[in-house]
Design a protein around this nucleic acid. Sequence first.
DNA 1: TTGGCTTTGTGTGAAATTTACACTTTAGTT
DNA 2: AACTAAAGTGTAAATTTCACACAAAGCCAA
Lengths: 229, 229
Amino acid sequence: MSYTYQYPRGALTVDCVVFGFDGGGLKVLLIKRGIAPFKGEWALPGGFVKVEESLDEAARRELQEETGLERVFLEQLYTFGEPGRDPRERVVSVAYFALVRPEVYQMRAATDADDAQWFDLDELPRLAFDHPEIVEMAHQRLRGKLRYEPIGFELLAEKFSLSQLQYLYEAVLGVPLDKRNFRKKVQSYDLLIPLEEKHRDGPHRPAQLFKFDPDKYQELKGKGFLFEI
Amino acid sequence: MSYTYQYPRGALTVDCVVFGFDGGGLKVLLIKRGIAPFKGEWALPGGFVKVEESLDEAARRELQEETGLERVFLEQLYTFGEPGRDPRERVVSVAYFALVRPEVYQMRAATDADDAQWFDLDELPRLAFDHPEIVEMAHQRLRGKLRYEPIGFELLAEKFSLSQLQYLYEAVLGVPLDKRNFRKKVQSYDLLIPLEEKHRDGPHRPAQLFKFDPDKYQELKGKGFLFEI
DNA sequence: TTGGCTTTGTGTGAAATTTACACTTTAGTT
DNA sequence: AACTAAAGTGTAAATTTCACACAAAGCCAA
């Protein structure tokens, strides 16, 4: 018996919503399309999946090829497959969301390649395809996850101050948080390792730096611990 | 310029993890494969996506064709795309999870078609492909969602007693819950409409029946309300 | 060196929520 | 009429959340 399938095939792509944080608001990385359709318009980085690679690999490869980004936090988001979402033919896209640290963010912002640029999440330009919908879902997911999983650290430098962490939470969740209560809570889990170093910046009191302890988190998680801000 | 893509294409399928609840434990609906590969083994209901249909439509169609189920709660779960997950060639599968009410569950359990059967979630037979992994993820997702979204009602009859609701939560979450505290909490949201009718069953005190008010939930959700058990 | 600026860092009491816990009511069966 | 089994109900203690204000540190400029 033959293994040939009787169904016609569409194409399969991956698209990545890459978030960055610069201390102010959330940013999203977009690329300017060099080819039709939507040539010259902004779009999410992404592209076709090769037959011999996994979806995650495809997402990482496209991110690397189109934006130069490597070793970022990457997680599958949702698969978009409405017929007609690509004007050419049936294209199903597995969307990912990615979080990058400020070092990376600043690096990419510096190289003024005008075909890859950071935009404020709430001031995005017109986007190709159904990419606005994808970005919207990624934003919702990020907001939802931040409350229950310690992924915010992926948007900060390895060493960060509690104020920086708080600014991040305020930016993503869109609400102001009480400084004392916030610090009490995040420190209560014992997942932040206080470092010797201090962060100095401007003519102010320098801030204690911390780093997140992912191993300890994994260990606690195994015992049913639930991170929650 | 031509719109022909330079990448070879794999096939695209949908697979559904269908959960049912009979007052005892969680059940999963499986079908016996009639064709190779894995002919004669149990597998998740699912099949190939047609070019002109959306992914959701494909999932509903396959469910209908293979199990007769219609009008079920259906939500996209995750997309599985490891090369090699299908021994024939590259097949990417968009997995869904579905929740069915006991009426439906009992109906399907009655028709003793031996090519579609309910199994206890914790006593599943050997499964084809990477379906064990898919079931595992669906179970996790169900557990996670149940705490924060009122989807448990999709596994109960339209009219249900508070005890039935509690048994469901206990079965899915795997922990015993305090009767009084549970009732206090679920009723505090004012999302359950008490009905005139009573449920009688056995030589016991009959139970007050309720139904869930989805409209009110949608309204509250719009105002930032968070359901939580 | 002094005063001013700006950010870090810290504690407490009131209010709200969560938790633990046991007995009465109801209907059916014998 | 007595027995059985599940439904239904309240309170007090413990814990968590929330609101809130001022001293300490370092830099800069006069």
